[in-house]
């Protein structure tokens, strides 16, 4: 197990504050957060590349807090690959073997096969595509048989096709038993690859939990915003109703709750938009579509209700056409009480 206790780093202009995490052996653990949240610094601290103000890091019961990077057996793969440009692909992959007691050439050959690098071995890293360079970087890291593999946004610099290919490789490596901590700012990658996730913003850990729990039940507004919950509204809760502050709208919520002020959130994909009044009267509002913004295959449709609520829904382009929803025209929105998240 990898255990990080009360880890703090001070870089003058940036601080990582009292961060604690536990990662189980064989787990694919994700660390997410916006740019500048301190994700890469956390990885570098685990690898021994950043001095700690305080904290303790143990890997498989061994305290590695004061060990230099080369003694930790923790490999780090960067977003920009960090290959050695003055060496061939093969020399890059084999380089770490110079520093291990029992170099395992067989392992190198297995990795070359796994990442399909046979035809690239004599090439200079600078002549390779991004996907190829990332495969070489992974093979180089795994050649030294690390206890823990740290990945710093390994997919973000790649084309979509390479991204899918590399995701498969990462899943395969993890399936083979490698414990992975991967940093990303894309929650889609978290959903497709991770077991558990830690959300960090501004150097502070906001939530650590199972990926689906964080997605469905974000702990606070910052996490909610990060996992794509767009419709965040201040409200007063009373039993199973939420009255939206300053507006006359009442939103039905699941389960009865004690009276309190709260923040509610509704995912855009959980809101239905229609041209005619839906059959269900629960959480159904009439309004006007004020904007239609294309986002790939879906549109962000923002609707201003008669009660002045402003909610954004995701609508498939095909539905937008078939339902004849246009900006400036009347429409209805509807969502299930189950879709309303209370913070």
């Amino acid at each position: 197990m990898i255990e990080i206790q009360d880890l703090s780093i001070n870089l003058g202009t940036f601080q990582l504050n009292s961060l604690s995490l536990k990662v189980e052996p064989g787990e694919f653990f994700m660390v997410v957060g916006p740019s500048g949240a301190g994700k890469t610094i956390l990885l570098e601290a685990i690898a021994g590349l950043r001095p700690l103000v305080q904290g303790k890091i143990t890997v498989a019961g061994r305290d590695i807090t004061d060990l230099p990077p080369e003694k930790r057996n923790v490999a780090l793969v960067y977003q920009d690959y960090a290959l050695f440009p003055h060496m061939s692909v093969l020399h890059n992959i084999e380089w770490g073997l110079n520093f291990v007691d029992k170099p395992d050439k067989k392992r190198v050959n297995e990795l070359i096969g796994l990442f399909r690098l046979e035809s690239l071995l004599a090439r200079s890293p600078e002549t390779l595509s991004g996907g190829e360079q990332q495969r070489v970087s992974l093979a180089r890291a795994l050649a030294v048989k690390p206890t823990l593999l740290l990945l710093d946004e390994p997919l973000s610099a790649l084309d979509p096709s390479f991204r899918e290919e590399l995701s498969d490789y990462l899943a395969e490596i993890n399936k083979a038993g490698m414990t992975i901590i991967m940093v990303t700012h894309d929650f889609g990658e978290v959903l497709s690859l991770g077991n558990r996730v830690a959300v960090i913003t501004d150097g502070t850990l906001q939530q650590t939990d199972d990926v689906r729990t964080v997605f469905k039940e974000p702990a606070n507004r910052r996490v909610a915003e990060f996992v794509g919950m767009k419709n965040l509204i201040e409200c007063d809760i009373c039993s199973n109703r939420a009255s939206v502050v300053d507006y006359s709208a009442i939103i039905e919520i699941k389960d009865g709750r004690p009276e309190r002020k709260a923040l509610l959130g509704i995912r855009p994909e959980d809101i239905l938009v229609s041209k005619t009044c839906p059959l269900s009267k629960l959480n159904t509002f009439r309004g006007k579509a004020v904007s239609l913004i294309p986002r790939g295959m879906v549109f962000d449709v923002t609707v201003q209700t008669e009660s002045r609520l402003r909610l954004t829904a995701n609508v498939l382009s095909s539905d937008l056409v078939s339902k004849n929803i246009r900006a400036g025209e009347e429409c209805w929105i509807n969502f299930d009480p189950e879709s309303v998240h209370i913070f």
Partner: peptide, 13 residues
Amino acid sequence: RVEKAARTLGASF
């Protein structure tokens, strides 16, 4: 980063 990656591969400073 190239130097840092090299350190994590087992090489001393």
